[in-house]
Design a protein around this nucleic acid. Structure first.
Lengths: 346, 346
DNA sequence: TTGAAAGCGCTACCAC
DNA sequence: GTGGTAGCGCTTTCAA
């Protein structure tokens, strides 16, 4: 209506106060629904505010109240530097988190962290932009999480619990899920099962343990050449599988540490003229929505992201309220579809 | 380290000031890299601040500066009330937007809007939580967008331009993309092509126009029974396709208004014993990453979301800077895969 | 039941 | 170059 930019300066509380012929204090109380101000006056003030399109300025409110009603959701991508959230896992988790947080009337501040990842967590915490932090995946940041958690309570991390860890994690039973998947491959008669993923990441490390456990309980030897430490991105995984094929290592099954790289592996295998599950059986991990639509449909270990997200938010708010909330491990479920094949070929 | 909650009160600027033996003003200037403060003193203050883990409180800073360095990204879901961001389209777009916004040093505040959608936009704008707003999809909110844009400039919307519209949109050439898709189906010999989607939503309406244009240029009559106004959710689309099949309407092709519902349609068709593309050819819209992995791989009209996101952010920052930025339509590309079939069957 | 006043932590104006 | 001071818009004592 005025000014060159066409902007309209938003009304402030003092404006409403003078319109109503009362003090800002009274407006503040009225808008907060305080019973201190007479019902009639309160309604009048609320009506006025609504008509003027007045909404409390949350920056000022936050400064005064020392809280933001905002939760930071952080996605650390140590190995995906330039890439835009390629992994559907993150994105599905993000959706569920956003729902759970919004339901409690809080805002969601989205943060993607890429290398170089220096001091991002202490800085985020100290900046006061949010009241709590949820980190999706430990990535390479165990140390940073550990340090900050010593003085900052409202922090919850999706991932694997570690022995020396003090921060709160919520995650899936990686060991159990992985071992069940590998046992299934063994039962189907697969002889040479590749572990496809980088065990140096906490969660992947546990899936690797499950893999080892399954081999051991079937009295199968571990073959070093069957460990392929692929990163969790589609491109690098495709390349890693192509390399493996070129190396002439023999294998008839792949247990992939995530669905995304399982799908890439299938593409690489198919491109090389092999059939899945005929020549090579493939099992993934996550059960992203893509898995069921794959060709063949992907057998995988399901993580219940909706429940995981709800649990994380629940714990975070407990910690926000000063209560204690310890780490949780949620059950994993083996979902059998087509890519693992039926019975043994030979 | 202290207190029952184990919280540590963050340092404030005054603390750093007294540690350094200077005034808060000087600390403020030093931390901002102002050349007004002597280089040596500036470095000293920065070192001190870093060691103390001090980070400027952004709420206070924002209040003072009257800006937030935050952009709201809003996803209005008129028809998906309880559902958690099921459509990969939104989620992929969100990822690209987050990248583009983060690159400019701004934060991303995520908002999901579900019915009842009263005054969400004016309230969001008036709350001062962000410096600008990006809305992904017009949904049913054209009117709200129109009203707010009359006084609030930093607003950019993903969607379709309308004749009477004053707000800034960025979107794909829906008409062109759709007509090319339908023309392709016609060329392949398909006779009865269903339009699958609700034309009352702005973007879908344009895709419908493209559908009409293609029929017309091939001198094909429009059949009312071939218009199936399915909502853009997987479940409702599946049901709508099942209903259509039960109704005995004859058709040999489906042009779906989004990939998500195209995939659902394929599932419903397959479940009913029909083959795709043998009995029914299917073409989608969006080219979500799922499309290429479908079985059969989905022929679709590609929207370049990365470019779209970059463009939206670019326009938003132009508007933030007081410049004008008008609506844009980006090209659409027909991606031919398997689900549309090859040549005619008969 | 209401208003005056203080102050959340910061930046920028003004004086020196 | 540097420090004092005012004030961003709000909530909440405290006093009336």
């Amino acid at each position: 209506m005025k000014g060159k930019g066409g902007h309209r300066a938003p009304a402030k509380m003092a404006d409403i106060a003078s319109m109503a012929g009362v003090s800002p204090s009274t407006v503040s109380r009225a808008l907060a629904g305080s019973p201190l101000v007479a019902k009639k006056k309160r309604d009048e003030i609320m009506r006025l505010a609504r008509e003027a399109g007045y909404v409390v300025n949350s920056t000022a409110r936050n400064l005064r109240l020392k809280r933001t009603e905002t939760i930071s959701v952080v996605i650390p991508l140590a190995h995906e530097a330039s890439q835009p959230l390629t992994d559907p896992f993150f994105v599905e988790m993000l959706g569920y988190l956003a729902d759970a947080i919004t339901q409690r009337g809080y805002g969601v501040l989205l943060q993607k962290i890429v290398p170089p990842m220096n001091d991002w967590l202490p800085n985020l915490v100290a900046s006061g932009r949010s009241d709590g932090v949820i980190v999706i995946g430990q990535s390479t940041e165990h140390q940073a999480l550990e340090e900050v958690s010593s003085y900052y309570r409202p922090l919850v991390v999706w991932g694997a619990p570690a022995v020396d860890q003090t921060y709160c994690t919520v995650g899936t039973d990686n060991i159990g899920g992985a071992s069940r998947a590998v046992e299934h491959l063994i039962q189907l008669g697969r002889q040479r099962i590749v572990f496809f993923g980088d065990p140096s990441l906490p969660e992947i490390g546990l899936r690797y343990e499950g893999y080892l456990a399954a081999l051991e309980s079937a009295s199968r030897p571990l073959e070093a050449k069957h460990i392929v430490p692929a990163h969790l991105t589609a491109d690098t995984a495709y390349a890693a599988m192509s390399n493996l094929l070129a190396s002439k290592v023999r294998f008839d099954a792949v247990f992939a540490a995530s669905d995304l790289i399982a799908l890439s592996a299938i593409q690489a295998l198919t491109a090389a003229g092999l059939t899945v599950p005929g020549d090579v059986a493939v099992v993934g991990f996550d059960d992203i929505s893509l898995a069921v639509h794959g060709n063949p449909a992907l057998t995988t270990v399901r993580q219940d992201l909706e429940r995981g997200a709800r649990t994380m938010v629940e714990r975070l708010f407990q910690r926000l309220a000063g209560e204690d909330a310890s780490s949780v491990t949620l059950p994993a479920e083996l979902i059998i579809r087509e890519s693992c094949g039926a019975k043994a070929r030979v």
